[in-house]
Design a binder for these strands. Sequence first.
DNA 1: CCGCCCATTGTTAGCGCTCACAGCCCCCAC
DNA 2: GTGGGGGCTGTGAGCGCTAACAATGGGCGG
Lengths: 356, 356
Amino acid sequence: MSHTAQSDGHPRRGRAPTMADVAQLAGVSHQTVSRVLSHHPNVRDTTRAEVQRAIEQLGYRRNSSARALVTRRTLTLGVVACNPTLFGPASTLFGLEEAARDEGYMVSAVTLRRYTAKALEEAIDHLSDWGVEGIVVIVPHREAVAALAELRLPFPVVTVEGGHSLPIAGVSVDQELGARLATGHLLGAGHRTVWHVAGPPDWLEAEARVNGWRSTLEEAGVEVPPPLVGDWTPLSGYRAGQELAGRVAAGAARRSSEQVTAVFVANDQMALGLMRAFREAGLSVPGQVAIAGFDDIPEAEFFAPPLTTVRQDFAAVGQASIRLLVSRLESGQTGSDGERVVIEPRLIVRRSSTSS
Amino acid sequence: MSHTAQSDGHPRRGRAPTMADVAQLAGVSHQTVSRVLSHHPNVRDTTRAEVQRAIEQLGYRRNSSARALVTRRTLTLGVVACNPTLFGPASTLFGLEEAARDEGYMVSAVTLRRYTAKALEEAIDHLSDWGVEGIVVIVPHREAVAALAELRLPFPVVTVEGGHSLPIAGVSVDQELGARLATGHLLGAGHRTVWHVAGPPDWLEAEARVNGWRSTLEEAGVEVPPPLVGDWTPLSGYRAGQELAGRVAAGAARRSSEQVTAVFVANDQMALGLMRAFREAGLSVPGQVAIAGFDDIPEAEFFAPPLTTVRQDFAAVGQASIRLLVSRLESGQTGSDGERVVIEPRLIVRRSSTSS
DNA sequence: CCGCCCATTGTTAGCGCTCACAGCCCCCAC
DNA sequence: GTGGGGGCTGTGAGCGCTAACAATGGGCGG
């Protein structure tokens, strides 16, 4: 009659069956059930089959909390992502989840609307509360990575696009190389110089792209125009485009270095806004101004005109970050050495930059 | 000397501190520590403060597995999402995560590259293995929802865009209304009829948009052209655009009902592809053909020309799905009644459909 | 035929926490 | 003075599982 009584061989009603229920039904001990479930070799085939049948009959599922409690493994990884509706972070996240699942881990994500040190800490706290074994941080702000380095967390952390200045393990695409590819391509098409619309200065990716662009121009010995600054949104690209369009109009009367004939935009969305501004100003792309973007979002190929851009393999980034994290988990190192994986981007040439 | 010895008042090295460690340091029982942590009112302020100090000194965190084991609450929700790099699913997912976090839950996601019954079941299995208390399914295939209805899971399930034919709780945007808004808008601008580029026929959203489009035309008493079919990608929109452009060219010589002067495209990405095809065919938008899309992705405003489209509040969908799920969790119902939340879409008129 | 080894199975002791309940002390009413 | 009802704290049990060890039985070499 007590709520723990179950002498009738049926599991307690209203409660999920336990290993003991399965054991009783199969006529073995709970430990044998455990052994079957963990594929222990020393179980007789007939026993194994009986246990399996009991499991199916009861619809038994191992209780993950009990298991985690005793094994001290939650098999859960955390992800902190910022701006995750953008194509890049979203793709990374999903590549990552798939890779984690293949490795036997579950992924729990926390998203940040905007980066602030407090929001980042809260996100990590939230994940810690749920017992993640390690986390991937996709928050490519300079300060975020610095804050992370301070935190000294009790589990491994891997950053995505976290730069290389701090001793934190991470995965990144070679942004500087990407910028060099795009800038070099435009220069190679005969443009005197290449203008740049940068991302927000506190984003490491934005900075790296500026560096790649600038150094390419400097190595080519051409003048480096002042970069404009956007915030990754099409609207900010549009504004930058309006400003540049004004310069083109005025340019004819000025010295040649002020001519705007080629622009490297730090992402595809801003490039889209830029092209709209140029269109409205009556400037033809690529006729009067050649443009290159960054990311290769699925839409880029269908822009007017199709956009030359730098493709990043976001899914590979996600996979690599999981590999890095899992290898640390398995080797038991939580320390922050600066092990890094770098993935090469690729230039995709389309009509927006070709004068033909 | 034994590894469980801890008579020196220090927590066992190499192991996270437990409640007992905190209790010992604070000079209270573990139960008092538990009470402090769960904000039980009957704890003296001075005691509470001492416990807090001990907690901070040790860097103690409550073990979520142990807690989940005894409370039978994992406070974790699962999400299954398909195609999650698209703007819609991604936004829904992140609105959902935020809402879940506010409610005190963690979200674990599993993504599907493509829908298959097997993949869906595996995803749900994976989530069950980790002890989720309920799941949100963002897989708007007809079969997926049907498969879900068969499954009879031991926890509540909420669908997003799961249609209304099955008795499963869900949240959706009124797709049919959205289609009616767009179609009606085009009709109202004086077009004889409106063509349609639909999404994949096994997607419920695609079907609903077709229905809304068709019924609007029928009610207006105009002819219903055969819908073209795409797969949501810009490329498929491009192909549809090429086909329609061919008709326009031929149209002048045919009967007027074959004239293509307005197209309602089932999403913005396909509309982008369509516009590229029209541009390449020398057709002007909106001059010769007016276009409306669906979703209002952030880029739509900057397309050439800016795209008239139907805005869906994805974040609201995510929030609503969590509210629905949590309310079922709290009322303890796992049954599948068909409770539904419907969110109204909104027409955003831009240049692609305005003749001015 | 005996002893030993190994394959197979069972038994026991926790993992770290919360719940139920049992104490204790102090204050107030009678 | 005594009983009783709070407020506050401690004790014990047990959530469902795995790890370590114990026990059993059969096969095989000596």
